[in-house]
């Protein structure tokens, strides 16, 4: 069953059509990749799904509910979380606090309770800290909780962003180029990790990736965008052999170094 569906979704910026009448179906518990040259509209797709942008036309459905037009926080409550192409952590907060913010919507305490330090609030805070530590450990950041996010090395920042997204307990996780800037060993580790998210936690993954080897290894399904249009879709093998895809990548447009790697 499809957990995320877009129907003829269009997004324009002034005269530029960033996404044109996109039909997309993401199956539950799938690892679904979106690929395409620079400026194809991949990140814009994510921004529409998470409510950062409102599509100009078309619909977005998530788990049987129409979500376009909802505020980002409402969409988060429904179970969509994301990471960002250029890492966006809360730089001046510690790693632990970053994850605690991710837990925000699963905590009930109000400011009055916090001021009065009621037992319920204290219990909840203890639980939240333990949970945040567990998540840090899960992504491989055990013992790094007290460091400010901005002082973490690049690879750990990516992990922290993941931990923060996982803290919201998403049903669908949108990953925007999670292996960008990683070396082969780290990339392999990330592939394993994404698989674990799906297999152990049952999270559906929608993945933007430029690194073709990654895409071909882990995707169940691949969608190819070019100039905002879907030009191909299918299993990795089908897509790889689609002449339109090859043309889009090898055409006149600038090609990312490792594309089609």
């Amino acid at each position: 069953m499809a957990i995320l569906v877009t129907r003829r979704m269009t997004k324009r910026f002034g005269g530029l059509v960033a996404i044109r009448a996109l039909d997309l179906e993401v199956e539950e518990r799938a690892i679904h990749s979106v690929i395409g040259p620079n400026g194809a509209g991949k990140t814009t797709l994510f921004n529409c799904v998470t409510g950062f942008y409102r599509p100009d036309e078309g619909e977005i459905w998530f788990a049987g509910q129409r979500v376009d037009g909802l505020r980002p926080d409402e969409i988060a409550h429904l179970g969509i979380a994301r990471t960002y192409q250029n890492i966006r952590l809360f730089a001046n907060m510690t790693a632990l606090e970053n994850v605690l913010v991710g837990l925000h919507m699963h905590l009930r305490s109000t400011w009055v309770g916090a001021v009065l330090a009621s037992p319920a609030v204290r219990r909840e805070e203890r639980w939240a800290h333990a949970e945040a530590r567990r998540l840090l450990e899960f992504v491989g950041l055990a013992g790094r909780g007290d460091l400010l996010a901005r002082n973490l090395p690049y690879g750990e920042q990516r992990k922290l962003e993941l931990a923060r997204a996982l803290a919201t307990r998403p049903k669908l996780l949108l990953l925007d180029e999670p292996t960008a800037g990683m070396n082969p060993a780290e990339t392999a580790e990330m592939i394993q990790f994404i698989r674990r998210l799906r297999d152990e936690l049952g999270i559906t993954i929608l993945l933007i990736e430029h690194h073709m080897r990654v895409v071909m290894t882990i995707s169940d399904r691949v969608t190819v965008l070019d100039y905002g249009e879907k030009i191909s879709e299918g299993t990795p093998e089908q897509v790889q052999n689609d002449p339109r895809v090859i043309e889009a990548y090898l055409g006149t447009r600038k090609v990312k170094a490792e594309a089609l790697g």
Binding site: A76, H77, A81, R82, F90, M93, E97, H104, T168
Partner: peptide
Amino acid sequence: RAWMAIREDEDVAEALG
């Protein structure tokens, strides 16, 4: 924590619910 999060990055904070 929510306050600090919107201080650091309002959009991201909102996307976290």
